[in-house]
């Protein structure tokens, strides 16, 4: 069974219009794999039949968009960014925020929440006593956000990169799934947000994880997102992109610092900063 060119064109237009995500020719297999379960559920004979229904059914469209925007996620995905979080970003921000003893973090395009909760685990282990932290987890998909709020993961998902010591410390069994502890859930707040549209009112973030999502957008949208990111990352804060996204043209808005093989981005100061007053 293969998706017909007109069906594929319709789906990629829909995804592009609603989420600015690109499904270029060659990604037919991906669209098929993600829509086939929905087609079965809707009682359609094949994916083309389902796409015919999508053309007139906004409810199914929303479901299809949810399915198309799902990313496979592991805990502590790629490892190195989390090392950089613990070794560089967290100590720097703890030093810089001693007056408020609070950190504000954004997990953008959070998918099913493994990134947000991985960060929550590290904060639980490394944040000094008496400090608090809030992680905002956003995604375009409300289905994904509901999963983050539930904090429940299948056995197969639990195997993906989660150290066994963290599994036993932060999770308990819930039927065939595992559920994350209430303490970590309290650290994470969810909000629906489409990265390609103007941001709603957001707080200033000390650290933003925006990983493996820019690759789905065209160049103009990428630049626009990074420009808007610049407005919400604290002047002394950090932005972390996916490993394949660090060579993007970041114009003059961002400085890059390397930590091992991880690139950290910090807001560039266009004018010279006045000399810091110390001991005042």
């Amino acid at each position: 069974m293969t998706i017909s060119p007109p069906s594929f064109a319709f789906v990629s237009d829909l995804a592009r219009r609603e989420t600015a995500m690109l499904y270029d020719p060659g990604k037919e297999y991906l669209v098929e794999a993600r829509l086939l379960p929905l087609a079965r559920e809707a009682g359609c004979a094949d994916v083309d039949g389902y796409v015919a229904r999508l053309r007139t059914d906004p409810v199914e469209q929303a479901k299809a968009l949810d399915a198309l925007t799902i990313n496979e996620t592991s805990w502590f995905r790629d490892n190195a960014p989390y090392q950089a979080f613990t070794e560089v970003m967290l100590p720097a921000m703890v030093a810089a925020r001693s007056h408020v003893r609070h950190l504000s973090i954004w997990s953008a395009a959070c998918s099913s929440g493994q990134e947000a909760y991985s960060l929550a685990m590290l904060l639980d282990q490394h944040l000094p006593a008496g400090w608090t932290a809030q992680i905002l987890a956003t995604d375009v998909s409300t289905t994904m956000l509901a999963r983050v709020d539930a904090g429940r993961y299948s056995q197969v998902e639990m195997n993906r990169g989660l150290p066994a010591t963290s599994l036993v410390k932060y999770f308990s069994r819930a039927g065939s799934e595992w559920e994350i502890s209430e303490d970590l859930k309290r650290m994470v707040r969810t909000q629906q947000l489409n990265l390609s549209a103007p941001f709603p009112l957001l707080p200033t973030f000390d650290i933003v994880f925006l990983r493996n999502v820019l690759i789905y957008f065209d160049l103009e949208t990428k630049r626009d997102i990074l420009r808007r990111m610049r407005q919400v990352v604290a002047p002394d804060g950090f932005l972390l992109l996916g490993s394949s996204e660090t060579t993007l043209d970041l114009e003059d808005d961002w400085n890059r610092e390397a930590h091992g093989r991880t690139q950290l981005h910090r807001p560039a100061t266009t004018t010279l900063q006045p000399i810091a007053l110390t001991g005042a």
Binding site: S74, Q155, N159
Partner: peptide, 8 residues
């Protein structure tokens, strides 16, 4: 835990 994927 079984079942697992090669990635795991």
């Amino acid at each position: 835990i079984k079942p697992f994927t090669p990635d795991a």
